[in-house]
């Protein structure tokens, strides 16, 4: 296995406040990493740095051994997909449209050139590719529903499908279980694990739910106040004294 993502000594501060402080971590191809820590520990900021929504102050982020392009959309096209803590969907667009936007962007078949020269209609192949992903996440009967009308569990599934439709190498999942109940969480976990088995997708997952982290992550990295404080297997990290105090709120 080769290293897919290599975060080297990355720092980011907002107004003199170091939110991510000399963080290094790496993700192997096809592996899964859990990222845990208290609210405000810098997990989401780290995601935004990797996805290109923010620029690093110092340090390097390598993807497949190469420096990443600066902008988020370029990074998405070379295989870094992302879901959000608070779902970021495209308003009232239908579920199918969400996937078409991502697919056409990925295939660089989007924009005025395509519309004016090749016609703007959706091809049967594009539709089929999207429907296939929708059936993976169990939304094939919701393709024409406006995404904003769906319940949260299905909206998270739409976000996941949108991330998967371009065949990413790395998925950054930010609190996938947040706001979901037990049944919905279990379903989402089984979808993610199935996709991982079938495609060898690597994931980094942030979550506060112990069961979700345990079910999704092979390795766990714990952060506090912008720094990595522990890493290892799920059992090792959750029994670490610092982690217990800062994240789990248990005094050993």
């Amino acid at each position: 296995m080769s290293t897919l993502l290599d975060v080297r000594d990355v720092s980011k501060s907002f107004g003199g406040n170091a939110v991510v402080n000399h963080v290094s971590l790496s993700v192997e191809d096809g592996s899964s990493l859990g990222l845990v820590g208290s609210n405000g520990a810098g997990k989401t900021t780290l995601f935004r740095l990797i996805a290109g929504e923010l620029a690093v102050d110092s340090g390097d982020i390598l993807f497949q051994g190469r420096t990443l392009p600066p902008r988020a959309d370029d990074r998405a096209r070379i295989g870094i997909a992302r879901t959000f803590q608070i779902v970021e969907l495209f308003g009232g667009q239908t579920v199918l449209d969400h996937l078409l936007v991502a697919l056409q962007a990925h295939q660089r078949r989007q924009g005025p050139w395509r519309d004016l020269v090749h016609g703007g209609r959706t091809t049967p192949e594009e539709r089929a590719a999207c429907m296939e992903i929708l059936s993976v996440v169990g939304l094939d009967d919701r393709a024409q529903a406006p995404a904003s009308t769906l319940p949260l569990g299905e909206r998270r599934a739409v976000e996941l499908a949108r991330a998967l439709v371009c065949g990413p190498r790395l998925l950054l999942a930010d609190e996938p279980s947040s706001g979901l109940d037990g049944g919905e969480t279990a379903q989402l976990i089984s979808i993610i694990n199935r996709v991982r088995r079938e495609t060898g997708l690597a994931i980094v997952v942030v979550d506060h739910d112990l069961a979700t982290v345990e079910a999704l992550a092979d390795h766990v990295v714990a952060m506090d106040a912008g720094s990595v404080i522990a890493h290892g297997t799920f059992a090792e990290v959750t029994t670490n004294v610092d982690v217990m105090r800062s994240w789990l709120g248990v005094t050993p």
Partner: peptide, 14 residues
């Protein structure tokens, strides 16, 4: 209404 939503276990306990 879901006072501990999205909080780390430690913060939820608080």
């Amino acid at each position: 209404d879901e006072p501990a939503l999205g909080l780390s276990p430690a913060a939820a306990d608080e």
